[in-house]
Structures are given as structure tokens and as C-alpha cells.
Design a protein around this nucleic acid. Structure first.
Lengths: 397, 397
DNA sequence: GAGGCTTATTTTTAGGCGCGAACTAACCTC
DNA sequence: GAGGTTAGTTCGCGCCTAAAAATAAGCCTC
């Protein structure tokens, strides 16, 4: 359903957006190709790219000979037009990364943090922004925006407010605080699972897909639902709490207080917890990732039972996503999801098949995530880029 | 993310659509009001409404005095501009209803059918279309479209194909068959739950809501998810199979073959089935609706246990929707949902609260559906109207 | 009941936009 | 270097919305 009126200016904005997006996603293209892929006339493609070249958003990128005729001049988004910064606020520290407009990583800073306390986090982010800029020799003025991925949910009002139970944040006005700490560029605060989903859609397994669900299994469990290239946020940006959907009515107590949540069975924390319970003793105090690796590679009957059960629950959880969303693609990501998927993908698919309806199951593929450990930061950095592309970087309003 | 290029013509189409939609949904409005609510300039509002008046899409609807100045002339969609037909293909027969463009019901035809067999259904629909038209004295040429709500899922290709397990339809090319049976107007085939959801959004509890979930509990269980006024279809129009999401891992066998589906606990069929099991005898052979009424009003301990358990499962299922979609509104509809909700709404809300995360739960309201038993037909009839509004009834392409 | 006032709608004018056609540019082959 | 081929640009047309000006249609006052 159409939302609002349109003016002549909106036309130009939209067409700029279409061209810019095509160039960003599908690499260098000639005006010719742009015209045919976007459906714009050659005349319009030419005028708009001319405008974008003048503004410095595009640059020429060599040329390609054409059968006997004038060679095509390739155009691409000017990587140096501006820069974007992605921040990953994790449970053990923060990571700040600087990218150019081609999403090439220019520099990275990691700051471990024993206690992820809001004020300290904001100061570290402010410092980190300065550090990545000076490390890469990039001027602060060329930063188009800073994206911040946080655990928990984000209320997107006039100023973003974060609710993150796992790190004890209750209604933290992060945007205001970052501003106060001296972060000047436009800010985009978003749930980390959603930024990671965005990264997977743009650069990972989701490329070119319209309806996808990115399931993130880490210590906990979350999901990003993408429809037509847009991450589903819900009424108040709380959508995607897959981990706390009931999958075993009346079952295990979850840390959220309810019983039978998926996260009480399928996340790394839950798997390790159930393993400890089954063993009736504590496993060695390793960090969670090594502990999970040990569990997954253990040949003990107990370990295998715990893992197999988890695979079953995870499959049922994935089947629920298949039945509710009917996506073309489900991406299994998150460090624990990747670890489990690397060993047990076939079993997960089988468990999904057991619980999903035949028809939607027949139309979905299940793939492992392809983005690395800094997907949250990359995804966060795409937020300002997405805005640039959507508005077509229109100078006037 | 913007999809495709736009031309000057698209501008006009969109603005026509905006005006037409405003007039359709918010009753008679003056050009003045149209201009301020849509944001279009008074000049443009005037030109476009003039055009629409000329084309017969709008009519004047009296005038309202304004403080001392020229009175406002009210405009509204011309109810007689065209008519739409909604068809409800149920498990026990078909219903055909004729509406004018103000969605006033002009005539209705019911055809019970012992066996819902595709060819017979198509012939009955073709006959029904003729009957409702002649009953109301409406010319076939003024029918803008026929919407058909069917159980099961609909593959929307070049021609709609229906998969409906409950009535034994496997890949029935309904659109082609209806065409062959002599139904001439444009056809819109859609899943009945989704058409019912559409009706609830336009005329029922969902009015004015952007993010809503309409949960339909009848014999089985389904859901329509609405985001920004659009029903979510998924990659292949299979989305919303809420009834077959796993809620009790390893639990009761469902008719879909899997274990622990919500539908195995919360639909009317499941409730009655569990009641029979608990009683260890068959309940009297009533029709399903009376049987459910009896169960709900029974004071026996067994009946109350079955009902209370169902409420618990249903609440957990609703909580899953809250956690995954974060809607502002959940509408509980369907005949069984309404019957249960009329008696147990508070308990359902409490059960939902037990399983949902606090934050998204705090932002959702749970309401009972307000559309009557022919919501499927009404919703189906809105399909052609939605197309008319979206395209702005643009004459040229 | 004439003139002034207020508000709604229409007409006029100006500035933008995309498209098709005509035109120019840049290469190749012979 | 002439002719052919393909890529990109320029120009005029028709369409669009917005702002300003003009007109319409009531009310109020004297």
C-alpha cells in the first residue's frame, strides 16, 4: 500500500537511488548496462550518472571494449567519497572498524572490557572512532555515519534507547550518551543480530535473496528476518526474539524466566549447561567457545546425546521459521551455529524436515553463514551506507 | 530498499493512489482535507480529484460549512463505480457475496457441498457469480474483480495454484479452472486466513494499525501477519503456517505428521480430540461448533482441564508471535478463537504474558476479532479493491 | 442588500523530470 | 581514411507538482 504523496523531486531521488544501489551491489557497470538493468532510458542514466560523477559519488573505473564500437566506460561508487564506521558492542568488549564506501576495511580497534558499563562503553567508542580514523589517516569530516550493533533490543525513537538484559542495560539512552561522549557523525544504533543479518544479506550467503531468515546461534539465539531486502523490525524494533519462543511447552526454565524457550535448548550456553547437568559435574572452566568445541568433538555418549538433542530442538526451531515466514533461504550463523553446522548440517536439515510442512520446506535452502567474526561490525557499518543508497545521496531535501 | 526506476507517470499514479486510498478508508473528505492529510498541494489535490470525478471514480457527497468561508464540498469513492465479488471456499461449501465499492453487501449466495471437489466448486462459483449479480440487478460488466479465499496455500504464479491438504486439493490450478468455467472478471485467489486477516485490518479490530498479527483459530490454526498494511506472503505465499509450528517438542502427533504442533493442542479439532481422549469415550456426534460450545461451557473437571490446557498452549503460541513479530496488535479471530476468547480472554492474556518477553509484550494489545462469519468472503472481495487503490485506477499503463 | 471578510477551489505560471530522437564520440575493419 | 558499430550526450516534448494569483461561495456588518 502506498504511503505518501510524491513530488517531482522524489522521482529524481528514487532514480538516483536505483542507480547508486545497482552500482554499489553489482560492482562497476557501464551507463549502458545501468540503463538496461534499471529500466531507465539511456538519456536519464546518462544525466544522473553525470550528476553523481560531478558530486564525487562515482568515479570511472576503466573501460571495456565492445564489438567494434565505442568502448563502454565503467562506473563505480567512489570508495573515497566517504567512510563509514561500524561498532560491535559485545558482552566482553567493543570493536570499532573503519571502512571506505567500497566496504574495504581500513582499520580496526579492539577494546576488551571486563564490565560492559554504558558510560565506559561510550567513552571507549568515542576513543575508538578517533583511533581508527588516525590509524588510517582518514579525516573525521569524511565519515558519513557510525553504526553501532548492540546486544538486546533498540527502541528507535528520536534518539535510540537500548534494552539489553544480558549485559544489564535497562533503557540506556545510548545515542544521547554517545553524542555526549563526543561522537559527531550521524549515529545508527541497531540490534547486533540485525546488523549481522544485514552483513550476511549484502556480503554473505544472502546475496541476491529477497526472502531470507538469518538464524544466529551464539551463546544465545536470535534471528533476523529479511523481506524484500529489508530487515523486519516490528512495531518497536523488538522483532526476532526467536530464542524466547516456546518450543517445549512446560520444559526447561530459561534465563528469561519462561519455560521451554528455544534458547534453553539450542544456544551454546544451554548446550553446555545441559552437558554439565548430564555429567553431574562442572566441565573445566574454559571460555565458552573452546568448551563448545570440546563438547562437539567429544565422543562420549553423554556428549553425543546432548548434541543430538540440541540438533533436534534447533531443527524444530528452524522449522518454525520455515512455516511462519516461508523464506527462500535460511542462513545458519553465529559462532555456535557455525560450529554446530560445520559438523551436523545434514542432521539439522533432517530435523528441520521432520518439523516443517512439506511445501514450504521444499522451497527453502539451509546454508551456513559466510561472514566472519566481525559480521556485527560490518553490518553496523552498512547502516549509514543503506541510508546513503536509499536517499540516493540527494543533496537537497 | 527501492526496487525499480520511476517515471513521471508513476508520480501521477502514486498520487492518485494516495488520494483514492484516503477517500476509501477515511470516508468523505473535502479537497481541502485531502490536501492537508496527504501532503499534496491544494492545486494537485484539485486536479487529481477533478480527473477522478470525470472518470466516475468519485462523487460529491454534500458539503460542510466552514467558519464564514466557502463551504467544503465533500468527496467520496463512488459506490456505483464498480462492484467486487468475494468467494469463500470452505470445507463444507462455498459462499459468494457481491459488494459495491463502498463495500456494502448487495447479495449473497450459499452453496453447501458434501464433497469439495475442484470441478464442482468451480462450476458452483461460476453459477454463484451469476446469481449474486442478477439478484442485485448488477451488470456483469461492472465487476472489477472476483476474490477467492481458499483453505490451504496458494502458489501465485502466472495462474494461481492451490494446495489444500484438508480438502484433498493437491496442486489444483484453480484460476485456470475458474476461467474455463466461465468466470470472466479478473481473479484474485488467496489463502482464506489471509483474506480474513485483510478484512480484519480494513474493517475490524485492525483498523489503523500498521503492525498486526491476526490469529485465526478454527478447526485448525493459522495466522496472517500484516506489516505496514500488507499481508506477509513469504517467498511462495506459504507464510503464516502458525498451526504447524512446534510448541511441545516431541509432543502429540499432528495431522501434518509432525509432533508437538500448536494445532495439535489449540484448534477446535485438537481440543475436542483431547477431550474425547480424556473422557475415554466419544462425545455425542454434534457438529464441531456445538461440540466446542458444550466443551467450553461444561463444568466437569475434565472439560475444564482440557480447556485450561488449551488456553496455556494458545497463550504460548501467541507469545511466540509477539516475540518474533513484535506487533502492536494481536487479533484473536476464527470461530473457535472467538468462542474461547469470549470466555477466557484474560486467561489467554495471562498465558501469553507467561511466555512472552516483557518488553514486546508490554507494547502489544490482544483483541478479539470483530468481523463476522463471512470475513473470508469480505476479505476476498477486498483483493480487487486493494489493486484498484494501489494502482490509483490509472487508465493508461 | 452592498460591501467586506473568510475560506475553498480553480487557474495560471514556473521549474523539474524522464523519454525518444537526433547527434556526437570513440573504437574497429578493410 | 572511409564506412560500420556501439556508447554516450543533447535537445525538445509532454507530463508532473508547487506556488501564486484569481475566482467562487458562503457569512457578517452596517
Amino acid at each position: 500500500m502506498v504511503r505518501t504523496r510524491a513530488t517531482v523531486r522524489d522521482l529524481r531521488r528514487q532514480n538516483r537511488s536505483v542507480l547508486l544501489t545497482a552500482l554499489f551491489l553489482d560492482g562497476p557497470l557501464s551507463r549502458q548496462q545501468l540503463s538496461s538493468t534499471t529500466g531507465l532510458s539511456a538519456a536519464t542514466a546518462s544525466t544522473i550518472t553525470g550528476e553523481l560523477l560531478d558530486e564525487g559519488l562515482l568515479v570511472e573505473a576503466g573501460s571495456v571494449e565492445s564489438d567494434g564500437g565505442r568502448p563502454r566506460v565503467l562506473l563505480r561508487v567512489n570508495p573515497a567519497f566517504g567512510h563509514v564506521i561500524g561498532v560491535d558492542v559485545g558482552e566482553t568488549g567493543i570493536k570499532v572498524e573503519l571502512f571506505d564506501l567500497a566496504m574495504t576495511r581500513l582499520s580496526t580497534v579492539d577494546h576488551p572490557l571486563a564490565v560492559v558499563e554504558p558510560v565506559a562503553v561510550c567513552e571507549l567508542i568515542a576513543a575508538g572512532v578517533g583511533e581508527v580514523l588516525s590509524a588510517a589517516g582518514v579525516a573525521a569530516s569524511s565519515v558519513l555515519g557510525v553504526g553501532v550493533g548492540v546486544p538486546g533490543t533498540v527502541e528507535q525513537g528520536t534518539s535510540a534507547v537500548v534494552h539489553a538484559q544480558t549485559i544489564g542495560w535497562d533503557a540506556v539512552p545510548l545515542e544521547k550518551m554517545l553524542r555526549a561522549a563526543g561522537v559527531e557523525p550521524p549515529l545508527y544504533v541497531e540490534n547486533g543480530a540485525k546488523t549481522q543479518g544485514q552483513a550476511e544479506m549484502w556480503f554473505g550467503a544472502g546475496r541476491g535473496t529477497r526472502h531470507a531468515v538469518i538464524a544466529l546461534v551464539g551463546s544465545g539465539v536470535g534471528v533476523a528476518v529479511v523481506t524484500g531486502g529489508v530487515v523486519h523490525r516490528g512495531a518497536t524494533s523488538n522483532a526476532g526474539e526467536w530464542g524466547h519462543t516456546t518450543i517445549a511447552y512446560g520444559g526447561r526454565r530459561c534465563r528469561c524466566g519462561a519455560r521451554g524457550c528455544l534458547e534453553a535448548y539450542a544456544g551454546a550456553e544451554a548446550m553446555l549447561g545441559r552437558y554439565r547437568e548430564a555429567l553431574r559435574r562442572d566441565v573445566p572452566r574454559l571460555d565458552e567457545q573452546s568448551a563448545l568445541e570440546d563438547l562437539l568433538s567429544s565422543r562420549s555418549a553423554v556428549a553425543r546425546r546432548v548434541v543430538d538433542e540440541s540438533v533436534g530442538y534447533l531443527g524444530a526451531g528452524i522449522a518454525n521459521l520455515v512455516n511462519l515466514f516461508n523464506p527462500e533461504l535460511i542462513v545458519l550463523g553465529g559462532w555456535a551455529g557455525l560450529a554446530l553446522g560445520a559438523r551436523k548440517l545434514d542432521e539439522i536439515v533432517a530435523a528441520t524436515a521432520d518439523h516443517a510442512l512439506r511445501h514450504p520446506f521444499g522451497q527453502v535452502r539451509l546454508e551456513l553463514g559466510r561472514t566472519g567474526p566481525d559480521a556485527v561490525a560490518v553490518g553496523a557499518a552498512t547502516l549509514p551506507v543503506a541510508v546513503l543508497l536509499e536517499t540516493g545521496a540527494h543533496h537537497r531535501d
